Computed example of a mutant assay.
Amino acid sequence: MLEKQATGPGYSIRDVAHRLQATAHGQGDHEATTERLINRRSAMPSEPTMRLRPATREDAAAIKDVVRMAYTKWIPLIGREPRPMVVDYEKAVQENDFDVAHSGSRLVGLIETILHDDHLWIENVAVRPEDQGRGIGQELLRHAENRALSAGRQEIRMLTNAAFDTNLRLYEKVGYVTDRREPSMGGITVYMSKQIG
């Protein structure tokens, strides 16, 4: 967030520090400069708060769009559409649990889960490309943990393609470990899990 503000119309914290340092050396009016910088930053529009809610059947088309946008970048790498891109989401929304993330009025991400007897399975997590890097994926994964714990499950499992390096790094960052790797459809499928209780 700070980097965006530093390159946009406002000032970053570093800008404020440099200006204050300059005024401390007699290069300006300290109080006036501070007030101008604070007022300019407080006048900047803030990013909409992300909110999560259960998906409905009416969300199926938007879910499909987000999934296709999120996975398109992997097509040249693996030579085909990843499996989530060919799912019938009209049907999936009725069979599995989906939670969708909104930023303002925009659907920016989703997580699809399936509750099993001894674990929660994450079938899919996807975030719009332009919204990646904002922590939405991590928030969706935390939401899945809360869902699992609420249902009395202490383990979460998932799989991903070994070629999806940014996904793997995210999952490892939030505590998932690789259980096994298996050849699949000309690539490698990575099975991962996380103990949460």
Rank of each mutant, 00 (worst) to 15 (best):
I111N: 13
Y11Q: 05
V100F: 15
I63N: 02
V174T: 13
E123C: 09
D117F: 10
M158H: 05
P183I: 04
D59K: 05
H116V: 07
A70M: 06
E130F: 05
H18A: 12
L170F: 02
A55R: 03
L20D: 09
E95Y: 01
D88V: 07
K194R: 12
H116G: 08
R83K: 14
T113H: 07
P54C: 09
P45F: 05
Q195K: 14
P183L: 05
I78A: 10
S42F: 13
A32N: 01
R128L: 15
M158Y: 02
R80L: 07
D179V: 04
R134D: 08
I75R: 10
F164H: 07
P183N: 07
E130G: 09
V93G: 04
D29A: 01
M85N: 06
V16P: 01
A101Y: 06
A24E: 05
A43K: 00
P84V: 06
E31I: 06
D131T: 02
A126C: 06
Q5I: 15
S42G: 00
H102T: 04
R53K: 05
Q27E: 13
H30F: 14
R40D: 14
V125L: 07
K64Q: 14
D15S: 06
I75L: 00
D88A: 06
A70I: 06
T113P: 11
D15M: 03
V93S: 09
T189Q: 06
A151L: 03
N161G: 10
R36C: 01
G152R: 02
E35H: 13
A17V: 08
Q195E: 13
K173W: 00
L110W: 03
R157L: 10
I196Q: 10
A6I: 01
L107M: 14
V125F: 11
A148I: 12
D65Q: 15
G104S: 03
R36F: 08
G135E: 11
V67T: 10
T160I: 06
T113R: 11
A101R: 13
G109E: 06
S12V: 00
I196L: 08
P48G: 02
G197E: 04
A144E: 07
E90S: 11
I122C: 02
P129D: 02
N161Q: 07
V174N: 12
V190H: 08
A32S: 04
P45E: 06
S103W: 09
R134C: 11
L149R: 15
M50T: 15
G79C: 05
I78K: 08
R19K: 11
L149C: 04
A6W: 13
D99N: 11
D59V: 03
T160K: 04
K194C: 01
N39R: 15
D65T: 15
A22E: 12
R147D: 02
G197T: 01
T49M: 08
V16C: 06
L120A: 03
G28W: 00
E155V: 12
E3T: 13
H30N: 01
L168I: 08
R134H: 12
A151I: 06
D97I: 11
R142A: 07
H143T: 00
I111S: 15
W121K: 09
P129N: 02
T160S: 14
A70L: 08
W74G: 00
